[in-house]
Design a protein around this nucleic acid. Structure first.
Lengths: 349, 349
DNA sequence: CTGAAAGCGCTAACAA
DNA sequence: TTGTTAGCGCTTTCAG
C-alpha cells in the first residue's frame, strides 16, 4: 500500500552530529559528558548541530562503557498499601539524585526468582529487596552478584546483606506503653503472617512490655497483611469469652480490616476496645479510621538505603541501619469522656 | 591498610566462558540467545562452564546491539491511590511478557520534563504517560522521539498520541441513571481539578443524563484528587441551603474524604444523602465505605496499552482505545428500609 | 583543546 | 554446527 512511511526515526548518533558540526565524534561526546574540557566556541557549534538534528545521547551505550547504569532496582510485592508508599518514596528520592528506578513487582514469592534473573542481567547500580517473603537463598545469591543489595524492612536479613529497617520491637513496645497509660488490663495481638520476621519482632516488643505490667498477649494470626484478613480476624475477638481491652495489630492495613470487622459485630473503638496499627499509612489519618499507629520514618529509611547503595564501594562488610518510628495518636486509643468500660476493671491486688 | 580486598567481582563475559569451554565467544552467545542453533553437546559444555564461573549475559550490551531494551517507561504521579493501583497492574502485566518497568514518578508537573529527558536517553521500548497534568507539549515532544507512546486515561491526548482510557462519560452517565432509579430529585458534582480533561468528561456524562430528567448538576471543585480535598469540599454541601439528594464525585479518593467530611457534619450516606465515586479502588470495597463507584477495567486498559506499545511498528497513525467500566453497587446509594427522606420529595407536576 | 583509536559485551551476517 | 568478523554508540587514554 504505497511507499513505506519512514516512521522509524533513524536515531542520530554523536557521529552524525560531529559531521554536521565539523568536529570529531569524541568532541561531541565530551560536550555531553565533560563540557568543561571543550572550548566554549566548539561547544556552541556542537550544541547547535545536536539541537538541530534532535540528538540525544544514548544511555545504553554510555552504560556499557562506564559500567554504571544509574538505575536502581527494587523488588517489591505487587500489592499492599504500605509497599506502594515505600515505592513512591524511593522513586522520588532516586529521581532527585538522577537515578532511575527499575521496578520488579511480584505476586507470588515464586516469581521473585525470575525477577532476580533480570536484575542480574541489567547490571544495576543497586538493588532494594523489600518484603519479608524473600527467602534467604535469594539474599545469598544476590550478595555474590557484585551489586550492592540492601534489604528493606527485613530485619532477619541483617548480617547477610546490608539492611535498613524500622525498629519493630521498640515501636510496638512504645505502643504498648501508650496502651498501658490508657489503663488497659488485657490485650491481644493480631499478626499478619506468623513466621515473617517483622511479625515476630513486633509481637515481641509488645508482649515484652505488656508482660512487665503483668498482662499476657495472646497471638492471633490473620493470615495475610490485608484488609480482608483483618476483617475476618475480627471474629476471633468477637467470639472470645472475655474481650480484651485492646488489640495491637501488626500492620495498618490489617488494622483497618479489623476495625471494620469489629464494628460490624457491634464493637466500636475506642468505646469498646482500643486498637493500634503499625506503619503509619496515609489512610490512618483518614477521619473514618483515625488510627493510633506507629509511623515509620519512610523517608529516612529510604535515604539510608540509597546512601548505602551509593557508598557500597567504600565499605567492607554489611551495614545495618535501624530507624525508630513515632507514635501517631489517633482516635482508636483515645478514651472518650463516656468511655468508662476500662474503669470497670476487675480488681487486681 | 593491607592489600585491596578484591571486592569488585570481575564480571565474567562470554569470552571468559568461551575460553573455559573451549569454544568461540559467538557460540557462548548463541547458547543464551538461540539455543536451538547449538549442538546439545556443546551446549552442555558451555552451560557448565557458565554455571561454574557465574556467568550472566549482559542485558546492556544486548540492548545496545539489538536496539531493544525490553524496558517500558511509565511516567506517573507520585501520589494517589489510583495511580498506585495502575502502576502495580502495569508492572505485573509487563513482567509476564518479560519486560521491565522503569518508573518515573513526579510530584510537581514541573518535573515531568526532567523525567522525559531521561526517558529519551534510555531508548525504552515504549512509554506510558499517565496523569492528565502532563501538558500537550510533552506529548508532542515524545511523539517525535521515535518511541511508542501511549497516554493512559488522558482522553484529551487522543489524536496526538496513542491513547487508552476508560469511558468517563458513559461511566458517570451510568452512575447518574442508577441514582435516578433511586428516586433522587437533586444532585451535586464534586470534581477534583476543574480543567482536567477527565474531570470535564465525567461531569459531562453525569450532567447530561441528569438533565434529561430535569435535574441540574451544580459543580463543586475540590481542588485536588485527594482525600483531604474531598473532606474539605464537604463543607460546601453542609452549608448549602437545600442539600442535594446525591453527590457524584469525580474520584474514589475524593469521595472517601467527602464521605467522612459529611459524616463529621452529621450527614450520613445513604440515609441523608447518596454518594458515588469513580475508579473502583480496593478501598471502595472496605466495609467502612462500601462505596458505589464506577470500577475501571484497569487490567483491560493496561493490556491494551501494552499491546499498542508492542505492535507500534505495524500500525501507522494513532490508536485510540476506550474501555467501559462497570458499576459497583455499594451501601452509599442503597436506600435502606428506614431511609425515607427521598420520598419527601417536593411535588413536581 | 581536539582527534585518532581502542574497546565495553553482545548479536548477526557470512564463511568454513 | 561453529568460527570469524564487524559493528551497536559511547567513553577514554594517548598523541598532536
Amino acid at each position: 500500500m504505497g511507499e513505506t512511511v519512514g516512521k522509524r526515526v533513524e536515531s542520530v548518533t554523536s557521529h552524525d552530529v560531529a559531521a554536521k558540526a565539523g568536529v570529531s565524534q569524541a568532541t561531541v561526546a565530551r560536550v555531553f559528558s565533560a563540557p568543561d574540557k571543550v572550548a566554549a566556541n566548539t561547544q556552541r557549534r556542537v550544541r547547535e548541530a545536536a539541537e538541530a538534528m534532535g540528538y540525544v545521547p544514548n544511555a545504553i551505550a554510555r552504560s556499557l562503557k562506564s559500567q554504571r547504569t544509574h538505575i536502581v532496582g527494587a523488588v517489591v510485592p505487587a500489592d499492599g498499601e504500605y509497599w506502594q508508599s515505600v515505592l513512591s518514596a524511593f522513586s522520588r528520592a532516586l529521581a532527585e539524585r538522577g537515578e532511575q528506578l527499575l521496578l520488579f513487582s511480584f505476586d507470588d514469592a515464586e516469581h521473585v526468582s525470575d525477577a532476580l534473573d533480570s536484575v542480574e542481567q541489567y547490571r544495576l547500580d543497586g538493588l532494594v529487596l523489600a518484603s519479608s517473603t524473600i527467602g534467604q537463598e535469594h539474599l545469598v545469591r544476590m550478595r555474590g552478584s557484585g551489586l550492592s543489595v540492601v534489604a528493606f524492612n527485613q530485619p532477619a536479613a541483617g548480617g547477610l546483606v546490608n539492611s535498613v529497617s524500622v525498629d519493630d520491637e521498640a515501636g510496638t513496645s512504645d505502643l504498648a506503653r501508650h496502651l498501658l497509660a490508657q489503663g488497659i488490663n488485657s490485650a491481644a495481638f493480631v499478626g499478619g503472617v506468623a513466621d515473617a520476621s517483622t511479625d515476630r519482632s513486633r509481637y515481641r516488643g509488645a508482649a515484652t512490655t505488656l508482660a512487665e505490667a503483668g498482662i499476657a498477649l495472646p497471638y492471633i494470626e490473620a493470615g495475610a497483611y490485608t484488609y480482608d484478613a483483618g476483617y475476618k480476624a475480627a471474629t476471633h475477638i468477637l467470639e472470645a469469652n472475655d474481650r480484651p481491652d485492646a488489640v495491637m495489630v501488626a500492620s495498618d492495613e490489617v488494622a483497618f480490616g479489623l476495625h471494620d470487622g469489629l464494628r460490624s459485630g457491634g464493637i466500636e473503638a475506642p468505646h469498646d476496645i482500643l486498637i493500634t496499627g503499625f506503619d503509619g499509612l496515609p489512610q490512618a489519618a483518614w477521619a473514618g479510621y483515625d488510627l493510633t499507629t506507629l509511623v515509620q520514618p519512610v523517608r529516612v529509611l529510604v535515604d539510608e538505603a540509597i546512601a548505602i547503595i551509593s557508598n557500597s564501594d567504600t565499605h567492607e562488610g554489611e551495614q545495618v541501619r535501624v530507624a525508630t518510628g513515632t507514635i501517631r495518636h489517633g482516635r482508636t486509643t483515645r478514651r472518650g469522656i463516656d468511655d468508662h468500660h476500662l474503669s470497670k476493671r476487675e480488681d487486681r491486688p
